[in-house]
């Protein structure tokens, strides 16, 4: 009996050893990211959180969104901490995709919408791609940052092309890659990209921001059109209009046109049409200068 028992323990540990190797292989396939260093704060936190890291990530993420989700807070908040917060969150839970996408937008955009750190945004998205190589939309986000914020159309085109290699990716990823490579920046491309961001997410903040940008693009178009009309007025009246109302009295416009938020456009001192500085379209409750 005792001999039998003594045999069980070594045999048991031998099979534990063998099983562990099999399990390690399975787990390695499940999380691709290799642990390089333990000492980065996110890693440390993950160690200390035992197995509750995923939950902790959610807490971090919720706090992040709560804090930065409030536009008024975002204006005065110290956006320096947004990068580290997102980094910790995604280290605790490397699969937390909404955090990467949120980060891509709000780290990259300039104040007051975001932290104005497109470099950090690129880093975060690249980390997301390492951890979730199957999720092609992260390539989209990467390409978008290059296109929109960094204006590096070559890299943007490459990112779209890389993402398009995923069999699940939508076909227009390839189209975008080609289009950006050929034309660089165009309003049409911008519109398509923002619309896609708007449609591909449930995140209220991201959608709000995409919608605002789409409206801004509309306003840009409107302003160009109004500038054309102002030129026509100038040619026929032999003087530049001082206000848009001049075009109305001249019968060129039926009334003063309004931006997508319903605030009338204004004619600037430079003779160009602008969105009213107090328009919510610019993202300010009060009115600092437009960018």
């Amino acid at each position: 009996m005792a001999m039998l028992l003594l045999a069980v323990i070594p045999a048991g540990f031998a099979s534990v050893w063998r099983l562990q190797r099999g399990i390690d292989r399975q787990l390695a396939e499940m999380h691709q990211e290799q642990d390089e260093l333990v000492l980065r704060s996110g890693k440390m936190l993950r160690l200390l959180s035992l197995e509750y890291g995923a939950f902790l990530a959610d807490v971090y993420w919720t706090r992040t969104v709560q804090y930065y989700g409030d536009r008024r807070v975002r204006q005065v908040a110290n956006l320096e901490t947004l990068g580290p917060l997102l980094d910790v969150t995604t280290t605790l839970d490397p699969q937390l995709l909404p955090a990467y996408r949120f980060g891509a937008i709000f780290l990259a955009e300039n104040a007051p919408q975001g932290a104005g750190r497109p470099d950090l945004a690129v880093e975060l998205i690249q980390k997301g791609i390492r951890n979730n190589p199957d999720f092609w939309r992260l390539y989209y986000d990467l390409g978008f940052i290059y296109y929109w914020e960094l204006k590096d159309y070559k890299k943007a085109s490459e990112a779209f092309l890389e993402g398009s290699k995923n069999p699940k990716a939508l076909i227009w990823m390839k189209v975008m890659a080609a289009k950006i490579a050929a034309e660089g920046r165009s309003r049409e491309t911008s519109k398509i990209l923002w619309r896609e961001i708007y449609e591909s997410t449930q995140d209220k903040l991201v959608r709000e921001n995409a919608l605002r940008n789409l409206k801004l693009l509309r306003a840009e178009e409107d302003c160009e059109y109004l500038d054309g009309l102002a030129g026509r007025y100038a040619r026929s009246a032999q003087r530049r209009p001082e206000r848009l109302e001049d075009l109305v009295s001249a019968g060129i416009l039926p009334g003063v046109p309004v931006d997508p938020e319903g605030v009338p456009y204004v004619l600037g001192a430079d003779g160009k049409t602008h969105v009213h500085p107090k328009s919510p379209l610019l993202g300010y409750p009060k009115g600092p200068p437009p960018r």
């Binding site: 509750y52 995923a54 959610d58 993420w61 209220k204």
Partner: peptide
Amino acid sequence: ISIGIEQIVIVTLGLSAIS
């Protein structure tokens, strides 16, 4: 409180509590 990740949070919270 958890924009965009409700379905994730409920599971991580639930499983963490169970554990």
